[in-house]
Design a protein around this nucleic acid. Structure first.
Lengths: 341, 341
DNA sequence: TTGAAAGCGTTACCAG
DNA sequence: CTGGTAACGCTTTCAA
């Protein structure tokens, strides 16, 4: 079964006994075609379901109207939502997107980039893989003049526009929220110290304490791994201190849920004994008891913004800016202590 | 700043003083080129970072090696994971993918399809929008000879290959699991009765009861809406019956978590008083107390399978088959009653 | 107002 | 072994 070839300008032209150029012009409403002929051509084009061949256009213009995306992983809600924002904006501007996953691996990231370049996408929106510390493959894009925008995990910010979130200040705000609502001894549960995200959020936490003249107790900062079990263990450790905290900032959702388990297991109440704040964009924060107060990313907006920055570049802008999309605090039941009577 | 044009065969040819055909042949290792010349050409191509222009190839072959995907929504874990499976398989076969979202809307779905056809993707993998009841836009693909594979929510299964899951039997197995592990009065919480997924899962639940000669009590079947609140309300309703159930099958994850809240609120224990099974593919099932036993979709595998079916079509197969990817039961703590001593 | 022809990058066929 | 040429579908001069 042969693939039926779509209608071409040539076919329309020969069927009407006119030239290809005439048909081409008529279809784009060029005024240099007689009204009558134009209508006739348009009618036939419609009847034959004519669609311009994008390959021919791309060949001519060297621009396929496709944007490439590189994410560490597409299944995570965080990235899926950002992609969604990018996609919607791209479509609005008549672009399609091709999504590739680095799976947090340096080599795969290079491969993704290579593939996107081979497809000749017009521009690229990327988030660095965790493994990546060498940025030469991205730097090479400047030579080929392929516009790129980074988001979330960024580099070479003097060369490429980027979209990031306010990790440090969001953690600071979360900590202050706890302070304002009855907590006094606040602990922090993070992940491996070499991750930028851990450094930044921890910094924000410490900053809040400093600004409120609260002495920093190193025992109240536990940074090991990220994950449910790790959160559980860290919380057990904190809660069995001789001077345990009365509030905890958990740096990710899995850490927060693990922490919650530990608190309940020890027979303590949330938020009265221990107030808790996590980070999560998902609805599950509503499903636990009590509902989890959490720092939320404006993921969709981050995607939209990254896409707009890229399209600016595509239109010729050479402005290199970094846009910060702040987190917002979603206050639920786990963080506000009611005053003791 | 002009976009630098990539190296073409012509440039390589003129630089070496040979013909374009020669360069083309040398680069694809044709044996009809002298060893020496071939090496020289390859060396220069490498130096100039030559990459074949995909637009020219597509124009020639009418095949851009791109697969189009239509999902109701990309952010939901379920679809994101399926997409991930499709993407990985597609890449393995040298295809890229373009992902579009119908947002469960009929009109948007038609637009997605239209866009993909305009881009001239080689084939399409799609899941129907909830709104869709008219399938003419898909049927039209047969005329244009664009291969298509449906997954999850399917139609026209005599024309297009498809991948589905076993909604009915998975619910039946879930119900039987409860029966085998100490439960006797099992209730079912579903969603709006006009959804196929509700009908199928409810059917499986009823079937399990029938096969075990358990009389069906209509009071134990609550089908209203899907969602956390709806699950909570349905469970309250069930648990305050004069003859309440001792186990519940909740048809989605949000229903299950809402159910859990109601059970706990009434001071009942899980699974001893009320055993519970949900449906969810996400890790959050592990984060609740007790961890939720759940029917799990093999989403990644569904994606892989759909992609393979499409690629078979692309290679010329005209076999129309429906592949069933069964759910698996992930047994955790919420479903097994320990015998009373 | 219309047509002819070149060109975009590649492959494939036919000559030599 | 190598070169020339047509063809893929379209836009864009240049001519008429």
């Amino acid at each position: 079964m042969e693939k039926k070839k779509p209608t071409s300008l040539k076919e329309l032209a020969s069927e009407l006994g006119v030239s290809i150029s005439t048909v081409s012009r008529a279809l784009k409403n060029s005024s240099e075609i007689s009204e009558e002929l134009r209508e006739k051509i348009k009618a036939l084009a419609k009847e034959r379901n004519y669609r311009p061949n994008p390959f021919a256009m791309s060949l001519l213009k060297n621009a396929p109207r496709i944007i490439g995306i590189i994410v560490p992983d597409i299944v995570t809600h965080y990235y899926a939502s950002i992609i969604s924002g990018i996609n919607d904006r791209a479509h609005k501007h008549g672009y399609s997107t091709i999504i590739t996953s680095s799976y947090e691996q340096f080599e795969k990231e290079k491969k993704c980039l290579e593939d996107l370049i081979n497809i000749r996408v017009e521009g690229i929106i990327a988030c660095l893989a965790q493994e990546t510390t060498d940025f030469a493959h991205f730097e090479a894009l400047t030579v080929q003049n392929v516009p790129l925008v980074f988001f979330d995990r960024v580099c070479l910010t003097n060369i490429f526009p980027s979209v990031v979130t306010n990790n440090a200040t969001s953690a600071q705000e979360a900590t202050e929220h706890l302070l304002f609502h009855g907590s006094q001894q606040i602990a922090f549960i993070g992940g491996s110290n070499h991750l930028a995200i851990v450094k930044e959020r921890k910094h924000g936490y410490l900053q809040a304490l400093r600004e409120h003249d609260i002495p920093i107790d190193r025992n109240l900062v536990v940074c090991k791994r990220i994950g449910y079990e790790a959160g559980y263990e860290a919380a057990r450790q904190l809660l069995t201190l001789s001077y345990p905290p009365d509030a905890i900032v958990a740096m990710t959702d899995s850490l927060a849920f693990g922490t919650m388990k530990a608190i309940k297991e020890l027979g303590l109440s949330i938020p009265q004994d221990i107030a808790l704040i996590g980070y999560t964009d998902e609805t599950h924060a509503n499903y636990v008891d009590p509902p989890l107060t959490a720092v939320t990313h404006q993921t969709y907006k981050m995607g939209e913004t990254a896409c707009e920055l890229l399209i600016d570049q595509l239109k010729g802008s050479s402005k290199i800016e970094q846009v910060i999309i702040p987190c917002v605090l979603s206050i639920r039941g786990s963080s506000i202590k009611t005053p003791k009577s």
